[in-house]
Design a protein around this nucleic acid. Sequence first.
DNA 1: GTGAAAGCGCTAACAC
DNA 2: GTGTTAGCGCTTTCAC
Lengths: 363, 363
Amino acid sequence: MSDARRRPPSSTDVAALAGVSQKTVSRVLNGEPYVTDEVRERVLAAARELGYRRNTAARALHLGRFHRIGVASIGSSLYGPSSLLVALERQARQIGYAFAVAYAGEGAGVTNAVESLLAQGVDALVVSDPIDPIDGGQELRIDPDVPVLSFRPIPGLAGPRVVVTGASGVEAGRQATEHLLGLGHATVWHVAGPHRWPAARDRARGWREALAAAGAAEPPAQEGDWSPASGYAAGQVLAADPRVTAVFVANDDMAIGVLRALAEAGRAVPEEVSVVGMDDIPAAAYLSPPLTTIRQDFEAIARHGLALLAAEIERSPSEHSDPAEPAEPAEPREPAEAGEPREPAGLPPHLVVRRSTAPPAKP
Amino acid sequence: MSDARRRPPSSTDVAALAGVSQKTVSRVLNGEPYVTDEVRERVLAAARELGYRRNTAARALHLGRFHRIGVASIGSSLYGPSSLLVALERQARQIGYAFAVAYAGEGAGVTNAVESLLAQGVDALVVSDPIDPIDGGQELRIDPDVPVLSFRPIPGLAGPRVVVTGASGVEAGRQATEHLLGLGHATVWHVAGPHRWPAARDRARGWREALAAAGAAEPPAQEGDWSPASGYAAGQVLAADPRVTAVFVANDDMAIGVLRALAEAGRAVPEEVSVVGMDDIPAAAYLSPPLTTIRQDFEAIARHGLALLAAEIERSPSEHSDPAEPAEPAEPREPAEAGEPREPAGLPPHLVVRRSTAPPAKP
DNA sequence: GTGAAAGCGCTAACAC
DNA sequence: GTGTTAGCGCTTTCAC
């Protein structure tokens, strides 16, 4: 006997070995009551012996829930998105969800990523760092039945089950700018991220708002692509302009490029020009000079966001076959308007002051 | 009627709407033959109208395969691991697999991550950047029935279904060292990654072998933890030693710290000290000075590795219920020895020369 | 060419 | 306390 069995052991096998019914095995595994300690032990022993593992497919099939959260993230190793991903996974596992990732490339990538996640079966989605569709690209549309978490309002993404929690880029831009203004600079220049990224627009908005609030002039913003190379290019432009004494750069990588361009142009940081970055990458403290930057608490953001998302999943009447239920009327919740809607109550970022910022030189 | 149905449409619903049997729907969806074009169209239309999506749980339940690959990666936003992850996901999706990730923390983290992946159901595992168990921690043990891909031989991880493809760290260490030796340096110092990381040991090994091959003395290696902070500490030690003229640093982040320490100590790079990093992070070209480093082709590594893994998955006799099969005898393949076994035929890394390296100063 | 029936492994009713 | 039964949505024989 013992024909080379290839399929993993099932709960029936465990039941047979333990000499109980299959249902009892199920009870033990789910920690349900009404099982003798003695039987429980026997079942557990049998399961261990067989190397039994619950078949999640069967479970999901019956429950209609996958216990899996899908994350569409930008396909890059940028520090911010990667850190957020790690934090999200940790939190997801903590609250009992498996974690699927699909990276988006440029353009319609987010849509493809979301499609791929939906196809494999997830209970909810996290849209981590979407970028706007390129011209002609279709807008992100998600099945309204699937709960979605995003970290800022996403143009075109609305629906009854969309939850938003903030990694407030606006606040970050504001803090950076106010720090420089507070040091006495007449105004602050800005090297922005790509305009197609909502996160980049947020930071720029915070910068703009802080300038306006202080009555400072708004210089034209340079736009980069998050890379040191693009920061270097922007930095060359800024270095050539003697009026520039303070710069807020939308991420640390670009700030590295800016720092280098300033160094090459012989403009001392912070004596002649102050620079603030954003992200607080591990290298930030070891640049020349160590970089003043803005730091976000990704762990907190992930925890908060996934808690909301889990609640939204639970809200689903996944109780099936209750045909005579009170038929609550569709209940539309906050029909989000198009455009750039409400700012979510975000987790505040945090300014880390190092040596790249100082009061402006006395003329 | 039309009771608020919460469950997504099933193939039965599609069948009903199209006026065919459920089986026919299945045929159409799987592209099987023996379906009239007319019926096919009708089914497709019905599916589209209902927003039908195949239930992967039911499919997996029947097939005994999940069409999902699980990746245990190190929980950090280090450039190397993140880049590899992105490449792996892209490739996995390309060949039709969903992608689950579990990050490992320190210590027994890898085991937990693997456990979590196995629990959720995956057809194969990728163990991306494992680190050795801390003292007393248990070794990584994986169900021998699950194909596993790793990028270098992992001590303690062996089994009939383990496939290894290389991101040859040894070769990288060799190249870096030979480059510096070739420039005329008497010997090369090394700032290694944490010894518990096999990847760090590989790079150190390449360094050591290149020194030995050239008959150069082997200075003591400094050990960092991949962070710029640890590179800075190591750099301070090196900067204080006048014999140091060339350093191979195991990753670019630490190299940033080394550069800073050298700068603070007034030791010019590359005039007095040459530095080679590894990873070619985007910032590498914009450091002061731009960093000579070693670059790996993660896309190629991922493609090659996943192709091997997919083949290993197929090799599985997932053809079930064929009790009278020729019962091929277990066929043990390369019983990998303990220790640090065979070096896999790896994808070669690639030296990128920038301005942080130069011949030694004439004394 | 198409359909009917069985069963994958699990959980929820409902007996006993 | 425990077992029996049914059924989740799909794919696979096997009829027709």
